[in-house]
Design a protein around this nucleic acid. Structure first.
Length: 301
DNA sequence: TTAGGGTTACAG
DNA sequence: CTGTAACCCTAA
């Protein structure tokens, strides 16, 4: 975690995450060609994106054991890649009603990558994996248990009784205050050491809050994907002041919508979708605002 | 063009 | 000296 050669900035990481969330994992060239992301990632190649994404997903490498005792990566194809290039929130998850959590002792985890879990830490590695999963998923309104499970199953391999372990652990973390459970979604608690300044929401607010705009709790709730694209396309022709104003307004709208969606403690999937769209719009607006000088429209190869 | 292995540079 | 992150090379 040092500062080696050309370290990736937070903006670049955010752009990469946003691009992956929008286009899918592995579509590096597509992400690079995206006008919103190419502004930030113009100094990176598709290989750089791939390498960076690979490094970001390196979780807990086996300490020691350079090239020996490496447990083979069992490619369990039990999960047939349900969705590739769709919003992760679009998984409607008909398998809800998952709050039936058995109070199963999970002390005997001992199922991780080759190395024995360190007995010094009070919490097992599964805690770190869960927190990392939620952090990397980076969903503004929290992550469903099924989404977390899907993420972990793709990053690692599912241990035995992983479902029960995850449910118990999530409840344990929620009761201990390390996670906040809103509706059926889990977020990282603000006081948790895992809540680094990686949230694009915070990133947005830090740079755009100079223009105090009225939080309009008005028509913005009916923000659709096409409207987002239209607004975004119009923004590229704005002046700096107009772009700043629009970005600030977008952030305010996103905040209002997300706050409203969270306050409504119900299973409102429509509000959730709106919050996602607003978040995406705000992020894209921010990226456009920051790099509107370097507007290079890469010709389609 | 992408995925994976290998190499180099830097931090602890 | 060791681990990590960016960089580099190559097969598919």
């Amino acid at each position: 975690m040092g500062a080696p050669k050309q370290r990736w900035t937070s903006e670049e990481e955010a752009a990469l995450r946003a691009g992956i969330a929008r286009h899918g994992v592995g579509k590096w060239r597509t992400i690079l060609k995206d006008p919103e992301f190419s502004s930030i990632l113009c100094y990176r190649s598709n290989v750089d994106l791939k390498d960076k994404w690979r490094n970001m997903n390196v979780v807990v490498s086996a300490s020691g054991s350079r090239d020996k005792g490496k447990t083979a990566v069992k490619k369990t194809r039990s999960t047939p890649k349900n969705n590739d290039h769709t919003m992760p929130i679009s998984t409607v998850t008909s398998d809800i009603d998952d709050d039936v959590i058995d109070e199963k002792p999970i002390a005997s985890v001992s199922s991780e990558a080759g190395n024995t879990s360190n007995p010094k830490k009070s919490h097992s590695r599964l805690d770190n994996i869960i927190m990392e999963a939620i952090k990397n998923l980076n969903e503004p309104t929290g992550s469903h248990r099924t989404t977390i499970a899907n993420y972990i199953e793709e990053q690692y391999w599912p241990p035995s009784d992983f479902d029960h372990l995850l449910s118990a652990k999530l409840k344990d973390l929620a009761t201990s205050g390390k996670l906040i459970k809103v509706n059926r979604k889990y977020r990282i608690a603000p006081s948790s050491p895992y809540s680094e300044g990686r949230s694009p929401k915070m990133l947005l607010l830090e740079d755009v809050q100079r223009e105090p705009f009225k939080v309009g709790s008005d028509d913005s709730k009916t923000l659709t994907r096409s409207q987002v694209d239209a607004e975004l396309a119009r923004m590229t022709t704005m002046t700096a002041e107009e772009a700043a104003a629009a970005a600030a307004r977008a952030v305010a709208e996103a905040e209002a919508i997300m706050a409203e969606a969270e306050a409504a403690a119900r299973e409102a999937e429509v509000a959730e979708a709106d919050a996602q769209a607003a978040q995406a719009f705000a992020e894209a607006a921010f990226l456009t605002l920051r790099n509107r000088n370097a507007t290079k429209l890469m010709a389609q190869a």
